[in-house]
């Protein structure tokens, strides 16, 4: 395979196929321990929520130990701009400090996303001082189940820096000791013995 792939000729110029369009963006939140908030992790592009959860697990569930994952279609999240007039329970996410990721902070009942934002500012602790608030209808959130295993089951330290730390240190010690010995032996009159 590799040899063939080494020798592909480059077709130049424009593509003759039409623009294809993108998948839907989903925002992914991860929960690092049971009972803790869901923290904004990033986005994935997916065809539907099931695919978003699947990609989210691969993409954002493997760097840190993670027990739960939420996927929310991006248009379902309101930050104050477009209003959603749907009645129900809204999940509230707060960015406490500039640059921090949004974290889930509780729920409010409201008639619309605008009302949800107002209610959140009043009722959710920390919301009034938050740098940014997001709300999303709870029913639009797709979540992993309580028994889903997201974190790896086998030892995968080969994909983490700490999986190499002690070996690397030992090897450096060996290399530097060897150099010191060579330096020390430099003036040995080897040919005399």
């Amino acid at each position: 395979m590799s040899k063939i792939r080494e020798h592909i000729t480059l077709v130049e110029g424009d593509l003759d196929t039409p623009i294809e369009g993108d998948l839907e963006p989903y925002v992914i939140f991860t929960q690092l321990a049971t009972g803790r908030p869901y923290i904004y992790a990033g986005w994935v592009d997916a065809i539907d929520a099931a695919m978003a959860i699947q990609f989210g697990r691969e993409h954002y569930g493997q760097d840190q130990k993670c027990v739960g994952l939420w996927a929310i279609p991006k248009p379902a999240i309101t930050a104050g701009g477009a209003e959603m007039t749907a009645r129900g329970r809204y999940e509230v996410f707060l960015r406490a400090e500039s640059g921090e990721p949004h974290r889930s902070a509780g729920c409010v009942e409201a008639e619309s996303s605008r009302e949800a934002l107002d209610t959140a500012r009043r009722d959710i602790s920390g919301a009034a001082e938050a740098r940014s608030i997001w709300v999303a209808l709870s029913e639009r959130i797709v979540a992993t189940g309580p028994d889903d295993v997201i974190w790896r089951l086998t030892d995968q330290t080969y994909r983490m820096a700490r999986g190499y730390a002690s070996e690397v240190r030992a090897k450096w010690e060996e290399v530097r000791a060897r150099k010191d010995i060579e330096e020390y032996e430099k003036d040995d009159l080897k040919e005399m013995f």
Binding site: A161, G163, Y164
Partner: peptide
């Protein structure tokens, strides 16, 4: 900025395993 922070966690693994390969 947030993406760089997340990416850098993984880059640390790439670098360490590279260092291990060179040392080996």
């Amino acid at each position: 900025v947030r993406t760089m922070r997340r990416i850098n966690m993984e880059e640390a693994f790439h670098f360490k395993s590279g260092e291990d390969m060179v040392l080996t």
